[in-house]
């Protein structure tokens, strides 16, 4: 019961979606596939809500037990509710509710969440620089190739760098664009895509046939 039903559900859902590819959307199986895709959005989307509930639970527990750094957890909880609660309240009650322009949700997103997200990613620039120092020490031929390509691409992407590259004989920016980006880089991306896609397809088949069950966890 605990494993048979989920395996049967995965098999039926997977087979319907895979087989329906060979039928028109207007057919019964085609209609079922479109319905299943909507159901997937609903059930899959609710996993986000599950994640939020989990965050609240973990932080609430830490506050209740006065664990180390609990005042910060209070801030997390306040932020979750400050952003989430007004978003689910009907707009008809107040223009501050809902997700539209002028709502609390929109204000918090524009003046706190979005700038903080940009800052977090910008901070990575410094860590990338530190990682680059370690990775780019040209200890062998392969590392040297990585160093040269990365430096050339970085120079090529800024006007001053492109002007510098143009000082050398031969059209280096054209060479970079044609043979590095659209040549060697594209070839590797294709190789990775083909390999990963074949792996994903075989894993999908394993899930549909019930061979792969790790997603169910233990118990």
């Amino acid at each position: 019961m605990r494993t048979t039903v989920p395996i049967a559900v995965a098999f039926i859902a997977g087979m319907v979606v895979a087989v329906s590819y060979f039928f028109a959307d207007e057919s019964a199986i085609g209609w079922l596939r479109l319905e299943f895709l909507v159901w997937l959005i609903i059930v899959g989307g609710m996993t986000l809500a599950l994640g939020v509930v989990s965050i609240v639970r973990v932080n609430w527990d830490a506050v209740k037990k006065r664990k180390e750094g609990w005042p910060y957890k209070v801030l997390t909880l306040v932020s979750v509710f400050a952003m989430g609660v007004p978003a689910v309240l009907p707009e008809s009650w107040s223009p501050l509710f809902g997700r539209n322009q002028g709502s609390i949700y929109e204000w918090l997103f524009t003046y706190l969440d979005a700038p903080m997200m940009a800052t977090m990613f910008a901070t990575l620039a410094f860590y990338i620089a530190s990682a680059a120092y370690r990775a780019f020490r040209a200890r062998n031929a392969e590392a040297t190739v990585l160093l040269i390509t990365a430096t050339a691409v970085m120079l090529w992407r800024v006007p001053m760098g492109e002007a510098f590259l143009n000082l050398f004989p031969g059209d280096i920016p054209y060479f970079l664009n044609t043979y590095i980006m659209a040549g060697a880089n594209m070839a590797v991306q294709r190789g990775i895509i083909i390999g990963a896609a074949l792996g994903a397809a075989s894993m999908s088949l394993r899930i549909i046939l019930g061979i792969e069950r790790t997603y169910m966890g233990r118990g």
Partner: peptide, 15 residues
């Protein structure tokens, strides 16, 4: 911690 909370709250509204 504020950023973590806001990001989680963002998904409440979105969901």
């Amino acid at each position: 911690h504020v950023f973590t909370g806001l990001s989680a709250g963002y998904y409440i509204g979105l969901t």
